[in-house]
Structure formats: structure tokens, C-alpha cells
Computed example of a mutant assay.
Amino acid sequence: MQTSSPFIFDARGIAKRFRHAAIFGALEALGEGESMRFVNDHDPLPLIEQLRRRYQDQLHIAYVQRADDAVVIDFTVHPAGTAQGCGSANGTGCGCSGG
């Protein structure tokens, strides 16, 4: 269960060549039940597909706003044992960085 407000990640201020790496790094830093509110200037469909493949059901993806020029998405890490997928046995986040 989420216990605080989502952490804001505004991708618009990050150089395009670094965005995906920065997003994956930010997601790896989330603990179980924590959320990251992702803000972007376009709908990142290729990124969403990468996230679904990498994190499977452990990462919940929920659009907050979906317009042509403004997209806001909440990414929430499911607690261990409540979702199929990568999982982290020690509660330190998703645990996919090694794969």
C-alpha cells in the first residue's frame, strides 16, 4: 500500500538520449508500494512496452492525464508476493537491475 505522495519524475528536462536509463534507474530506487509520477510531453508507448516486459505484473501503470502534448503516468511497485514477475526478496524495489 502506498504511504506517501508519488515522487515526481519530469522527463521533459532530461536529454532524450538519457531518458530511458534515467527512468529505469528511478524505478529501481522505488521501494515496495511507492509510486513515481512520470510527466512527459508525449505518450511514451515504446517505453511502456519495455516496462511491461521488464517488470511484468510487479509494476502498476496508471495514466493520470493523456493528451497529445501532456502525459502524466503513475508507476507503482507492487509489494512482494502480490504480483507475478521479477520481485525483490529484500523489499528494496523491483530488483530487475541485475537482469
Results as ranks from 00 to 15, higher is better:
44 P>Q: 11
91 G>T: 10
92 T>Y: 01
54 R>Y: 09
62 A>V: 00
26 A>T: 12
40 N>K: 10
67 A>S: 10
92 T>S: 11
40 N>C: 08
34 E>I: 09
94 C>K: 12
15 A>G: 05
82 T>I: 10
59 L>V: 11
34 E>Y: 11
55 Y>L: 05
85 G>S: 09
13 G>R: 00
39 V>T: 02
35 S>K: 09
41 D>M: 05
61 I>R: 10
36 M>I: 10
60 H>N: 02
74 D>R: 11
56 Q>L: 12
74 D>W: 05
24 F>Y: 02
83 A>L: 12
66 R>H: 08
42 H>P: 03
81 G>S: 14
11 A>L: 11
54 R>I: 08
8 I>D: 03
97 S>W: 04
10 D>E: 08
80 A>H: 15
91 G>A: 09
92 T>V: 12
20 H>M: 08
86 C>D: 07
80 A>R: 15
97 S>H: 04
10 D>L: 08
98 G>E: 07
61 I>K: 11
28 E>F: 02
4 S>V: 01
13 G>L: 04
66 R>M: 12
88 S>M: 02
95 G>M: 10
83 A>S: 14
49 E>G: 05
25 G>D: 01
75 F>C: 11
45 L>W: 04
40 N>P: 03
77 V>P: 14
76 T>A: 15
66 R>Y: 08
55 Y>E: 04
88 S>C: 14
23 I>T: 04
3 T>F: 07
78 H>F: 14
51 L>P: 04
2 Q>G: 14
28 E>W: 04
89 A>T: 07
11 A>T: 07
67 A>I: 07
99 G>V: 11
10 D>Q: 09
76 T>L: 09
38 F>Q: 08
80 A>I: 13
20 H>K: 03
52 R>G: 03
75 F>R: 12
67 A>K: 02
36 M>V: 09
4 S>T: 05
80 A>N: 15
72 V>R: 06
1 M>G: 15
30 L>F: 13
98 G>V: 03
89 A>F: 10
87 G>D: 11
84 Q>K: 14
89 A>L: 13
3 T>M: 01
30 L>H: 14
13 G>M: 03
94 C>W: 01
97 S>F: 05
71 V>S: 08
82 T>S: 15
41 D>E: 07
81 G>C: 13
14 I>A: 02
30 L>T: 01
45 L>Y: 06
70 A>P: 05
8 I>G: 13
87 G>C: 05
76 T>W: 14
25 G>L: 00
3 T>I: 03
21 A>F: 04
56 Q>F: 11
91 G>M: 00
66 R>K: 02
87 G>E: 13
61 I>A: 10
95 G>T: 03
56 Q>W: 08
51 L>N: 05
97 S>G: 06
23 I>E: 03
76 T>G: 15
63 Y>A: 09
97 S>L: 00
57 D>M: 04
89 A>C: 09
48 I>C: 00
71 V>Y: 05
64 V>M: 12
95 G>H: 05
78 H>T: 15
98 G>T: 06
99 G>Q: 14
67 A>T: 10
74 D>M: 10
51 L>R: 12
31 G>E: 13
16 K>P: 01
15 A>T: 00
87 G>I: 06
23 I>G: 08
33 G>R: 13
90 N>L: 00
24 F>E: 06
2 Q>A: 15
